[in-house]
Simulated scan of single mutants.
Amino acid sequence: MTEPQTRIVVLTAPGEGLPAGMEPLENEAELRVAEDMAGLESALPGARVLCVTDFRTDALAEAWPAADRLEWIHATSAGVDALMIPAVRDSDIPVTNARGIFDRCIAEYVLGQVIAFCKDFAGNWQLQQAHRWQHRETEPVAGQRMLVVGAGAIGRRIARTCGAIGIECDGVGRRARAGDEDFAAIYAQADLLSLLPDYDFVVIAAPLTEATRGLFGAAEFDAMAGHARLINIGRGPIVRTEALVDALRDGAIDGAALDVFEEEPLPADHPLWDLPNVHLSAHMAGDFIGWKKALSAQFLDNFRRWQRGEALNNTVDKAQGFVPGT
């Protein structure tokens, strides 16, 4: 008797369809695309693999009782917070993520924002629109001090990229570590409040976990230097948005570059759109031309490993919410 094909369920955002680059699997697996809770609930019975491309989904918790044969869950994102429902976290089903795909481009984004702030590109644009010639002096980039909150793979790439042009980069991790090759120093998250006054740029590159949710609020913004800028490429809920808006309005910090938000999409009437010295982008810091195919190629490679019974790449420590050692 012929073995039935492995059923792979791909959970996407509505209207996305099968991700580009997954077409090779159509000849060797039963692919089912689900776009909502009802579709996921229908597709899960008998499925052995679940690939989640919608990092904002809340469908998994409701559809989970239908997962009767699941052996592996993959997220095509670095963050896996949407998947860490108790049933998944407490199971023996491995969860993998997209570590390594977005690191370089996110680091380029952060460096670009640092340069944009230091060279006041926004001011240049405003003067250009007013047809106004105004000579000004701007800040040097080399010598700026940066604190990267989240010393994992993405944070490390940020430190390496920014350090290459003379930015002094320290990191914050779960615990302090000495002798790092990319960070001048890595401090413990417990010491964050006492560290913040010493930096020109504070970059959030941490995953969203119970330990980081709401990590930046009024006390943290009050502790930052008045000339400092915040850059968030981690997850929106790490920052308490109302406290950030107050800090920007009151001048507690000088500016912010935000790629992620507590509420996405950011509502059109949100005050962040109109605050001066705020740079906003639509959760796209790491999304380069061809990123979807790169994510599919990474999943296909791990699928081959799974078929051969080999260890999976990028296995998440579900208790912590990220891949260990990053």
Results as ranks from 00 to 15, higher is better:
T76R: 15
A130T: 05
D90R: 15
A66C: 04
T96F: 06
I101K: 06
P140T: 08
D90Y: 06
E71W: 01
F117L: 05
V95G: 08
D120N: 11
V88R: 11
V95H: 10
D68N: 05
R69I: 00
L111T: 09
E139I: 08
I85R: 08
V148A: 08
N97W: 06
V88Q: 13
D68T: 01
Q128E: 05
L147S: 09
Q134G: 04
V148N: 11
F117E: 06
E108V: 00
A82Q: 07
G79T: 04
W72Y: 06
R89G: 13
L111A: 13
T96W: 04
V149M: 10
V80T: 00
E108L: 00
W133L: 02
F102A: 02
Q144N: 11
D120A: 14
Q113F: 00
A78H: 05
W125Y: 14
Q129W: 10
V141T: 09
W133P: 12
F117M: 03
G143F: 03
G100I: 11
M84C: 12
F117H: 06
D120R: 09
Q144C: 14
W125E: 12
I115Y: 06
D68Q: 03
K119C: 05
A82K: 05
I154D: 12
V110T: 06
I115D: 15
D68L: 03
V148Q: 07
V149W: 07
R99G: 05
R89Y: 01
A98S: 09
A130V: 04
I154A: 10
H135N: 08
V95K: 05
D103N: 03
V110P: 07
F102M: 05
F121V: 14
V88F: 15
A151V: 02
Q134S: 09
F121S: 12
R69H: 04
A98I: 00
A107K: 10
V110I: 08
A82I: 01
L83I: 03
H74G: 10
S77D: 07
V80F: 01
F121K: 08
G100W: 09
A87S: 14
R132D: 12
I85V: 12
H131P: 00
W125N: 07
A67N: 10
Q128M: 09
A142D: 14
L111Y: 12
A153Y: 00
N124E: 13
